[in-house]
């Protein structure tokens, strides 16, 4: 089942093509927010090199957030339009789950995406018999709050995501030996992870519709915003 996946949740624009057995191609560029200009040519480049066309794809996967508002819209609109034109199934995958999936680590996996102003999108995962399990659901919080939570209740932690670059010093200071930083090749969003998760979820029976799939922005609630304002 040929699966095309993209992730444009962060500055990394990434697309990948895989089937049940192999990763056939992956193309990633980590630069300014230029997804609207780069994503479709990137997909074309990859497919051309593989001698494939969009009509050959059997399943589409896309990262639905949390992450950049504009980025998410570009990735999701692109994948939805492909799926719609060729009437093929589409699966939305959490960006945080995608990041966690990068890491085959026997401990707590904590992907961290920068949400600006000392806030992060994060969740906590671990693996049981190789399967990724979500322990703390994706949420938005202040980086200090996550550090306190991890300090108190978790050990053998690995972190990845662009938030680990922004808040590197804070993380190392707070967690010291409790934490390891992911290597660079596994630190960013990878469409190959989104694609494999999409394929897994499809086989498990998940079905999203190209009419109804929407981004998961994970915004702060009005109440959270008020509280933050008052604290200031």
């Amino acid at each position: 089942m040929k699966t095309l996946a993209v992730d444009t949740s962060t500055m990394m624009a990434t697309c990948a093509l895989l089937d049940e057995d192999r990763l056939l191609g992956e193309f990633s560029l980590n630069q300014d927010m230029t997804h609207s200009e780069n994503l479709v040519p990137m997909i074309k480049e990859m497919l051309d090199n593989l001698n494939l066309k969009v009509k050959d794809i059997d399943l589409f996967g896309v990262a639905i957030g949390p992450g950049s508002f504009t980025g998410l819209r570009i990735g999701i609109a692109t994948i939805k339009s492909f799926a719609h034109v060729f009437d093929k199934p589409v699966i939305g995958v959490s960006t945080l789950e995608g990041l966690a999936f990068n890491l085959p680590y026997n401990g707590y996996i904590v992907p961290i995406i920068d949400a600006r102003r000392n806030r992060i999108y994060t969740g906590i995962y671990n693996r049981i018999k190789g399967n990724l399990i979500n322990i703390v659901e994706p949420t938005i919080m202040e980086v200090d709050k996550l550090m306190k939570l991890l300090q108190k209740e978790y050990d053998h932690i690995i972190v990845n995501g662009n938030g680990t670059l922004v808040y590197r010093d804070i993380i190392l200071e707070a967690l010291g030996d409790q934490v390891i930083m992911a290597p660079k090749n596994l630190n960013s969003c990878r469409a190959s992870s989104i694609g494999e998760l999409a394929l897994l979820k499809y086989k498990e029976g998940q079905r999203d519709s190209y009419y109804h799939l929407v981004p998961e922005y994970l915004r702060e609630s009005q109440a959270q915003r008020e509280l933050r304002k008052r604290d200031k």
């Binding site: 950049s68 508002f69 504009t70 600006r116 102003r117 915004r219």
Partner: peptide, 11 residues
């Protein structure tokens, strides 16, 4: 504003 991705611009 949040439906405009406002924060991404101003920050």
């Amino acid at each position: 504003l949040y439906d405009l991705g406002f924060e991404e611009y101003i920050y």
